[in-house]
Each structure stands twice: as structure tokens, then as C-alpha cells.
Design a protein around this nucleic acid. Sequence first.
DNA 1: GCGCTTGTTGTCAT
DNA 2: AATGACAACAAGCG
Length: 275
Amino acid sequence: MPEMPEVEIVKRGLISQIKGRKITNVEVRYQNLITGDVPQFIDIVTGTTIEDIGRRAKFLLIHLDNGYTIISHLRMEGKYRVSADPAMIDKHSHAIFTLDNGQKLIYNDVRKFGRMQLWKTADLANNKSIAKLGPEPLSDAFTFDAVKPRIMRHRKDIKTVLLDQSVMSGLGNIYVDEVLWNAKLHPETPANHLNDDDIRNIIKYSNEEMTMGIDAGGSTVRSYLDSTGHAGHMQDFLHAYDREGTPCDRCGTEIEKIKVGGRGTHFCPHCQVVK
DNA sequence: GCGCTTGTTGTCAT
DNA sequence: AATGACAACAAGCG
């Protein structure tokens, strides 16, 4: 499901819906959802108050008032839903947090790829998953000097490199295709063939696409919904992703779909040429 | 019904 | 160190 803009929308929704609420009960129905000891997770979380919700790249950070943070990753299909309606709970609801206002924070995940992990808030930077993340768009660290060497040290396809969260973080399969379309870069261009203008374009369009995605409430191509159950509408503004067979918005050539690094990849064969 | 696809990441072998 | 294959899982599509 979600890339950085979608996770940001979920974060903002959760802040308005559950920030300041006390968690009175925790039910974990799918044990593998929790990385670590499940009874200990339930024990530490129950009775705490949600101080704030943060985000790093595609990781949601649910800060509790006892010094712990739930690091939550939605992976492909994870969704949060805040509701008092029991009908919102089904066979794909893997964790249910009861709140002190009678509502429940329900974690749904059809494919069960998402994970939650407890970590001491003061030590988040040392968490293995967080520590390896490269700079993310829209942050102060996302500079030419920081990004260029991280990209140029690879000879893989630029598409695969931009999906590597340790190079830079936040982009996923949709937004990478959009950034490369905007930058007029063929997805199979070796990363170390890029020039400084290409790097500047990647930075510029990564910032632009992340901002657009957030402003549009995220992309809903298949299944993404925010924590209030609403779809995003960024999909209406996509130039490449899911557009195979339709004319390129720049030149009219049909958008093609190929596999790059095992991922479905959409591009304009006329505008985006291999260097 | 089978095979292939899907907004991700972590692990393993080379 | 970098790279590619594969794994986790369920459902929809042709």
C-alpha cells in the first residue's frame, strides 16, 4: 500500500483521531504482526497514553507516555482505522487497541506483511530499520551533496537504486516511476551514469511528487485508504504509473510497462531514454 | 483452476 | 560491499 505521502496522511489522521487517548486494552490476533515478545508488547502498551504520532520515511512512530514507541510499518496493505463500529473488525484485523473514549484503533492487513515493534523512544535512531534509512525528500538532510554520492556509488538501474531505502527513503514503486518520468530518465539507466543535472532533477521532482501526493491525500490505485476510510486522489495526476497503453502527457507516445528489478515499471519510451 | 500480479522490506548466498 | 533471488501472504484477474 503506502509510500511516504500515504504514511504521512495516515499519521495526520491518527494525530487528529487518537492523540492524547489512553489505550485501555490491546488484542493481538496475528502473533507474527509483532516483532518481539507478544505478551510483553501487550503488557507495555496497555494503560499508556498516546503522546504523539510521528513518521520516518514509511515508518509510523506511535509515541507512548511510558518512554516507548510503537514502530509500525504498513508494508503493502496495512491500514489503520479508528472506529467504534464492531463491523469494522473482520478476519484481516490483526491488532485492536481499545481507547478510553470507546473507540478502537484497528490494524487491518490482508497480506499480513506489516509489522509492529516496541522501541525505547530515546533510542529510536539506533533501531536497525530506522538507522539504515537514507535522507528523505522534504527534509533538511535531502541535499545535493548528501544524495549525489549515495546514488552514484551504485551501477544498478536507477529505478532499483531509488527504491533502496538506504540510498534515500520515502519513494516507492508509484512515485519512483513518476520522478523518473519527470526527470526524463529511463528506469534502466545505470545509476552511476547520471550527471549533476539528473541528480538535481531527482531531488527536485522527489520533493515535488511527495508534496503533491500529500496534498492529494495519497494515491489510491488498488487498496489504500486513510485512517478515516477515505481514498486519496493522487492517482488522477499520475503520468506514468498504471498508465501503460495511454499516451504520454508530454509527447503522446504510448506508455510502456516493463519489469525492472522485479517490479512493474512504467515509462515513456520516447521521452525517457537510456544513457 | 492455474499462473501471474500487487504503493515493501528483510535475509541469504554469491 | 554490492547485487539478485527469494520469502513473508492473500486476493483479484484473464
